[in-house]
Design a protein around this nucleic acid. Structure first.
Lengths: 186, 186
DNA sequence: GTCTATACGAAGATAGAC
DNA sequence: GTCTATCTTCGTATAGAC
């Protein structure tokens, strides 16, 4: 199938960006990892590496936003947040703290701010919707969702640098308290 | 002076990493920006680019930790946090949202986890000391300091992607509330 | 659509003179 | 300590056949 090779390349790119970053990941790496045919890169991605990176950012954004929505429970305001954090925790542990967020890598290394902002926004929206359903006001929910995304992305960086999960544990503990208070208050 | 050229190169590297990242910054860029002599790179940095990056990370870590300590006020628990956030805010605005944290760039792109972890830890220690002085318990202060560093680093990324200061504003609002409660509680 | 071969440029690192 | 010149590696992108 034609679009199958493209899909595999996008997923491999997202995977490889996590460990090696954008500049550190060559097309040949993506080919080798995905098993996609060599000659079809510029057929599927006429815009070159940037177009591949943009697709990888979009893929990661969609994937995690869907995960957050699926984990949302009206009676448990922190369930979705735990799912979100759990995903990053697994990325860190599975990679022995070598991997992080592919979107962060792309944001830092290339000029794909728009795609990155879209992905971050989808995560915030999904998290905020869950907080509203659990009782928070819309304004407060949006602010808390921003804090969750920022703190978890930052904590993932700290975990990667320090090669331990403590920062993520510390952050989630504080966030859960804060969210409990915000959802009870209204 | 001999060490003057070295110092200039380190500062320029830290500056350039913020916008272009580690791989995106060539030695020639550092030379051009710092005005340092071409032929002395490998004299000052025998370990090559990685040694330069490590020095840049250390420099940034020291610089900001000192800034946090200088802004610490025993009677105002959020003064140091505001100084910390204010620094990133200026970086974002001055660069028109093109620049971020050089240590994040190095963490994502190279394998200098140790130096990055040191820098993050110094920031956390400086912030935690201020929170303890303002009345928080040591354990809680450490946890909050981790949250502050993670959330601010993450928010800086979100600001850069979205090209606006809203994420940083949202994050600092929540953090100030949380810190006020933690310091009053004891 | 997929292949191979290659052009082209960039950048890190080294050698050796001054 | 600082210079210039160069080596070498690598990776994007293109050209053109199948």
């Amino acid at each position: 199938m034609a679009s199958d090779a493209r899909e595999r390349m996008v997923r491999s790119a997202a995977y490889l960006f996590r460990e090696r970053g954008f500049s550190g990941t060559a097309f040949s790496d993506v080919i080798a990892h995905s098993g996609a045919p060599r000659g079809s890169i510029y057929h599927h991605f006429p815009g070159g590496k940037l177009e591949l990176a943009e697709a990888a950012v979009r893929y990661t954004g969609d994937f995690l936003a869907a995960g957050v929505r699926a984990a949302t429970r009206d009676d448990d305001p922190v369930a979705a947040v735990r799912a979100f954090v759990g995903w990053w925790r697994r990325v860190l542990v599975k990679s022995d703290f070598q991997a992080g967020c592919p979107i962060v890598a792309v944001t830092v290394e290339s000029q794909l701010a728009e795609a990155a902002a879209d992905a971050f926004r989808r995560w915030q929206d999904a998290l905020a919707a869950g907080l509203v359903a659990a009782g928070a006001t819309p304004v407060r929910a949006a602010r808390l969702a921003t804090l969750v995304v920022a703190a978890v992305e930052g904590a993932t960086l700290l975990c990667r640098a320090g090669r331990c999960l403590d920062p993520l544990d510390d952050v989630i503990a504080e966030l859960e308290d804060l969210i409990g208070i915000a959802c009870d208050a209204s």
